[in-house]
């Protein structure tokens, strides 16, 4: 009896607040709410059909792919590079570590706020610096394609520490002589780093890529909401932002449920990939 009792609290929550909503959104995605909101009309797959014919939704898929793709790449490589440097344990490393890790504890909403200020065309320091040094003056958050760059910048800044923490922990297990030869030692060591050290850490990279995809697809909502609100126009409206708008600004419950199901499907694929390929890789680590 005991183990079942121990599991009750966990499964009560998981079933009511994850499994039930999941099933519920599947069901809702096949319905349309009548104009007066009092009746549910079965429409089959029409919600999905309308989504994939809507240029807005197709646009949000493209933006999500570009935003997530670039952010993941930048984050993983920056974090790996920083971890290599921190691992040299040069004097002062504890201080650098503390400073570099801080954004992990800062929320996406605040990351968005900080960068909104820094990129502000009138009072922002980054903008001032760029216009003084390179003569560039840009309305970062309100013009294409800079709004997207600004989002990527704020998102990468927030997530790099997470990846660095994992790489740094992973590097400890790489034999010292390999690392010694690897860092900052001319061209051949550069090759060694990428041919030997990076592949050794591939299970970590794999895990991080998955975690980062989740961060950039979902947690980044706050960054987008604070910095661009999906604009200019719908230029930076990602899939999660589209879902939010359709559900809570336009009250299109059926369509929004279909969007939920699509995101759900993407996460199912990600989870499957993780367990299918992850299981094997983790074993020999």
């Amino acid at each position: 009896m005991i183990p079942y009792v121990l599991l009750v609290p966990t499964f009560a929550i998981i079933v009511i607040f994850i499994y039930w909503p999941a099933v519920y959104s599947f069901k809702m995605s096949f319905y349309r709410i009548s104009p007066f909101g009092n009746r549910m009309i079965y429409t089959g797959l029409r919600n999905f059909g309308r989504l994939f014919q809507s240029s807005e939704y197709i646009h949000s898929i493209k933006v999500t792919a570009i935003y997530v793709g670039f952010s993941v790449l930048l984050t993983v490589f920056t974090a790996f590079f920083i971890a290599l440097l921190l691992n040299l344990k040069v004097p002062g490393t504890p201080v650098y570590k503390a400073l570099i890790f801080i954004p992990y504890a800062i929320s996406p909403a605040i990351s968005g706020t900080l960068w909104t200020f820094l990129l502000n065309p009138v009072v922002g320091h980054v903008n001032y610096f760029l216009s003084k040094t390179f003569g560039i003056s840009v309305d970062w958050l309100t013009s294409k394609p800079y709004a997207l760059y600004a989002l990527i910048l704020a998102s990468v800044w927030k997530v790099v520490p997470f990846d660095t923490i994992f790489y740094l922990a992973g590097i400890q297990d790489v034999p010292d002589d390999l690392l010694e030869a690897a860092t900052l030692d001319g061209a051949s060591s550069w090759t060694k780093t990428w041919r030997i050290v990076f592949p050794l850490l591939s299970p970590i990279t794999f895990y991080l890529v998955i975690m980062n995809i989740i961060s950039f697809m979902f947690s980044s909502f706050a960054i987008i909401d604070v910095m661009t609100s999906g604009g200019p126009g719908d230029y930076t409206t990602t899939m999660i932002y589209r879902l939010y708008l359709d559900a809570f600004s336009f009250q299109k419950t059926g369509i929004a449920s279909a969007e939920s199901v699509i995101l759900f499907g993407i996460m199912a694929v990600v989870t499957f990939v993780y367990f299918y390929f992850g299981e094997r890789k983790v074993h020999y680590q």
Partner: peptide, 22 residues
């Protein structure tokens, strides 16, 4: 396995619509 399947599912974002209705 049922628990494992939820590992990468941030319910507070992916399922805001049904969760809100609940």
């Amino acid at each position: 396995a049922l628990l494992f399947a939820t590992l990468f599912l941030p319910a507070e974002t992916v399922m805001i619509v049904p969760l809100f209705l609940i």
